[in-house]
């Protein structure tokens, strides 16, 4: 192999670092997208054993949004292996303990259970907020688009915009509007 061809091989198989902002995103929906980048499915040279996967840096995993009442209903099971060692943790409990775990498990479960799964998971870097170490962030050259828009809260609109908005009804005088802190 000539020097030129070897360099060409390196360029083709270069690992790209992608960034994903998980703010207000459904982790199970995002997992399907992120998993493709980790496996390299977005590349034309993809092969299951060709090791074409990329790195994905996920930020703001603390602000993920589970659909419906999944925070209360979703349960993560763990068994220590000893008698009576079973434990069930609610999604909200797990999220309080480690705000990266719900997303991490969602991505892990979205992948096929084969020997490549651990290698692919090694290339996933999840951070609970936007504070990413410089040595990680400087590698990033691409951003993955989030599947959904971030909804805007009422208190985030200016008063002028609220005034201009067409009103369907007037609240009754004794109606108490809860203030968002």
């Amino acid at each position: 192999m000539s020097i030129y061809k070897r360099a060409q091989q390196w360029t083709t198989f270069t690992r790209v670092w992608h960034l994903f902002d998980a703010k207000w995103q459904n982790p199970f929906e995002s997992a399907k997208i992120i998993q493709k980048y980790l496996a390299g499915l977005h590349k034309p040279i993809y092969g299951p054993s060709a090791d074409t996967g990329d790195h994905v840096v996920v930020i703001n995993s603390k602000e993920i949004a589970l659909p419906g009442d999944e925070w209360q209903k979703r349960v993560y099971f763990h068994h220590t292996g000893f008698a009576g060692g079973a434990s069930w943790t609610f999604a909200w409990e797990l999220h309080e303990k480690d705000p990266t775990l719900v997303l991490k498990k969602a991505i892990y479960n979205s992948m096929k259970g084969n020997l490549y799964r651990h290698t692919k998971m090694e290339r996933l870097h999840i951070y609970p907020d936007a504070n990413v170490p410089q040595e990680i962030l400087e590698n990033v050259t691409n951003q993955i688009r989030r599947p959904r828009l971030i909804p805007k809260r009422l208190d985030e609109y200016s008063e002028e915009e609220v005034e201009k908005f067409p009103k369907l009804i007037d609240y009754p005088e004794d109606y108490v509007i809860q203030k968002i802190k």
């Binding site: 060409q8 360029t11 083709t12 270069t14 790209v16 960034l19 902002d21 590349k43 034309p44 040279i45 930020i59 936007a130 962030l137 990033v140 050259t141 691409n142 951003q143």
Partner: peptide
């Protein structure tokens, strides 16, 4: 020529600061 991640990439992305 063979594909690489830099093929058909928008050159504007070279001076974008992440996260964007």
């Amino acid at each position: 020529g063979p594909w690489s991640p830099f093929v058909n990439r928008d050159p504007k992305l070279n001076w974008v600061e992440f996260p964007n």
